[in-house]
Design a protein around this nucleic acid. Structure first.
Length: 431
RNA sequence: GGAGGCUUCGCCUAGUCCGGUCUAUGGCGCCGCACUGCUAAUGCGGUUUGGGUUAAUCCCCAUCCCGGGUUCAAAUCCCGGAGCCUCCGCCA
């Protein structure tokens, strides 16, 4: 939810933001009208209530002879109040509806344009050269006994997979590495629920125009999260946080579920685009004035993680038309996939400003002890399946082996490479 | 799944049976002022959170877990729901 004061005082800023996103500008005027209508309804109901309250007290004090007349007046007012409250309720609902339709206001620095207009900020790491035919992650993974797509489809359908043997060990190694690095950087590790109530889903902005992306458990009115961002943002809903000494940071682990509606034909091969994967997500609660710096920090941690995995990548600044509902600004990191000869999104970090906090009612106390809206940011530390895919491709060797980056070795029994038919007991940390 | 208990303005708490100065009591904590060489102690005052209105103050409305209902009037009565606790059943 955007700041209503901003809409009232600077509607043109919001209109410009809508235009940049390619969204409907007239929603701003609808919101302004709904806001004015609500305030009028509130005033009317408040005044009537005050009158009615006085009348009600007069009933008690009235002498017996006056009582019937006073009571009559109180009853009449009560009816009016009821009607005014009804009008207020519908005005409130109309305002909320109009309010929810408007996505976050894009930051000034965001590049204009759509999906193809992201600006590359930098490219890091040398592209690997292979003097043998490059294979994609499925060929490599299946040869290693690390990925089983066929049985994934048998058990759960398209876009499902099993990670087996070295693949399963790789998942745990990545998770351990990600969590360890996050804890060292000051994050609190969190294992988050993957099923959440509608409020959490709506609060993080996932139930708007993209709600067909989300799995819903209708019978229990719960949703499967597409990222632990949802649960972690919801974790402090309706709270007043203590944010005296900088951001409060969590590293959340959860399974993530995505319907991938509308992506038919995209990435149908492999585990790059799947209905379910596990992920370590960074999440930050901070003061609004801290978000720009915090966003860059999250981005830096993401980059350092990919550097530790020895993966070449580039950082892109996402254009306005491609921003999510909650984001004011977003950076993606795209890593190199040799089989595609292209950079593909591996991680992403968004500055949501106060947008999510306003929906979820997350506040903090300022220097004067007054509650203020907090700000939220999120960033992928490691989306496991896609990262495994990238690792297998980039670090493939001609003999079907896969090089293990040094940072991962402590979690894989110290092995320097994964090889087809290898002994699994060698690839686990000492028991 | 079944039975019972609990939920009050940061924390604890009075009030709920029997509706109306509840404009919610008291303690702790916190803030300010006074007093005092300093600290402590003491005294006085303040201290929920939203919304409306306003240049600002004032003022008004809402808020006793949430949502309905009864009533001129609800923390209080009725119905529904949530969360927590205890016991039983089931389960990893």
């Amino acid at each position: 939810m955007i700041d209503l004061r901003l809409v009232r005082e600077h509607p043109d800023t919001v209109r410009a933001s809508q235009r940049a996103r390619g969204a409907d500008e007239s929603l701003v005027d609808e919101l302004l009208a709904a806001d004015a209508a609500r305030r009028e309804a509130v005033s009317r109901a408040d005044n009537l209530r005050a009158e009615q309250k006085a009348a009600s007290q007069a009933v008690q004090k009235a002498r017996a002879t006056e009582r019937p007349a006073v009571l009559e007046r109180a009853k009449a007012l009560a009816a009016e109040v009821k009607e005014a409250e009804e009008a207020q309720r519908s005005a409130d609902a109309a305002l909320r509806e109009a309010h929810l339709k408007i996505p976050n206001v894009v930051a000034d620095e965001v590049p204009p344009g759509g999906e193809d207009d992201a600006v590359t900020l930098r490219t890091v790491g040398d592209l690997p050269a292979y003097d043998f035919p490059v294979r994609d992650h499925i060929e490599i993974g299946e040869a290693l006994g690390a990925i089983d797509m066929e049985r994934g489809a048998k058990v759960s359908g398209a876009r499902f997979y099993f990670l087996t043997g070295p693949g399963a060990l790789l998942e745990f190694a990545l998770a351990q590495l990600a969590i360890s690095r996050a804890v060292t950087a000051g994050f609190t590790p969190v294992i988050a629920p993957a099923l959440v109530k509608p409020e959490a889903m709506e609060g993080t902005g996932f139930l708007g125009e993209h709600d067909e992306e989300v799995y819903r458990i209708e019978r229990d009115d719960l949703y499967l999260v597409g990222t632990s961002e949802v649960a972690i943002a919801g974790m402090h809903a309706k709270e007043v946080l203590d944010l005296p000494a900088g951001p409060r940071r969590y590293a959340g682990w959860s399974s993530c579920f995505r319907r991938e509606a509308g992506s038919y034909g995209k990435d149908t091969r492999g585990i790059i685009r799947v209905h379910w994967f596990d992920k370590v997500e960074m999440f930050s609660f901070c003061r609004p004035e801290e978000t720009t710096a915090e966003h860059l920090r999250l981005l830096q941690w993401e980059e350092e993680f990919l550097q530790a995995l020895e993966l070449p990548y580039r950082v892109v600044d996402i254009a306005a038309g491609d921003l999510g509902t909650s984001a004011a600004r977003k950076f993606d990191i795209e890593a190199w996939f040799p089989s595609q000869g292209a950079y593909r999104e591996l991680t992403s970090t968004s500055d949501c400003g106060t947008f999510q906090a306003r929906r979820l009612n997350i506040r903090y106390r300022d220097g004067d002890g007054k509650p203020q809206m907090a700000a939220t940011l999120n960033g992928t530390l490691c989306a496991i399946a896609r990262t495994i895919a990238c690792l297998l491709e980039v670090h493939q060797r001609p003999d079907g082996a896969v090089y293990v980056p040094k940072a991962l070795r402590p979690w894989l029994g110290g092995v320097e490479q994964l090889t087809p038919g290898m002994s699994l007991t060698a690839a686990v940390p000492p028991a």
